[in-house]
Design a protein around this nucleic acid. Structure first.
Length: 205
DNA sequence: GCCAACGTTGGC
DNA sequence: GCCAACGTTGGC
């Protein structure tokens, strides 16, 4: 199951009180601080169990309030980021995957923190999980809202060139999850990584 | 459509 | 808890 997403929602913002099991940052080992994100979604039609999982940035723009729940993520690391670490107001890149060309299309923000992904209980949903129970939900999602498109599409190829370069010189993208954990559909970015990538939208390549 | 990388499952 | 088999992601 693909961590792809979406459709529906536009949840009014009762901020959720649930989830108390927060992360607790054991800073015994100090890792990078993640306050920004990259979220992948497929902008082109693809059918899973007969249902189109297409959800590109234009689809988000067309949602009520330009807001959608990021349902359908079925990977534990990605879930943990959404459930435990994403905070309201944080920014994320909207990344187009499984298309040509792949890359960053826009910026979104987290408008509702982690809560139970209802699609896990829906037997008709492509991401139905028959083993998850209401008493002990397995999958979580957040709500995101469109902020803006990037001034230009920032292709993966360009990010990869930067990554390769930065690995040599220990530049800002030398550890970026997009390449060090390529298959994760919800990825963390440090502010430095986020800002560097954002600065690329100005450049003419 | 191919397939490398990597996550998950389940036997032992 | 190991690890082989299998499934998925997603670039190309």
């Amino acid at each position: 199951m693909p961590p792809r997403k979406k459709r529906k929602t536009a949840a009014p913002a009762t901020s959720n009180s649930k989830e108390i099991s927060k992360p607790i940052i054991s800073n015994t080992v100090i890792g990078p601080k993640y306050e920004c994100w990259l979220m992948k979604s497929e902008p082109e039609s693809r059918y899973e169990n007969g249902i189109d999982v297409k959800f590109g940035i234009e689809d988000l723009i067309n949602e009520p309030n330009q807001t959608a729940c990021w349902d359908g993520v079925r990977n534990y690391q990605a879930r943990n980021f959404m459930r435990d670490q994403m905070k309201e107001g944080q920014l994320a890149f909207f990344y187009h995957s499984n298309c040509r060309p792949p890359g960053i299309a826009g910026i979104i923000k987290i408008v509702k923190e982690g809560y139970v992904d209802h699609t896990q209980y829906d037997s008709k949903d492509p991401h139905y999980d028959r083993t998850s129970t209401k008493e002990n939900p397995r999958w979580y999602m957040v709500d995101v809202q469109f902020v803006r498109k990037t001034k230009r599409f920032i292709p993966l190829s360009e990010l990869k060139d930067m990554y390769m370069k930065h690995k040599q010189i220990d530049g800002p993208l030398s550890n970026v999850a997009l390449f060090t954990r390529a298959r994760l559909s919800v990825q963390p970015l440090t502010s430095e990584e986020f800002d560097f990538i954002l600065s690329l939208e100005e450049a003419a390549e």
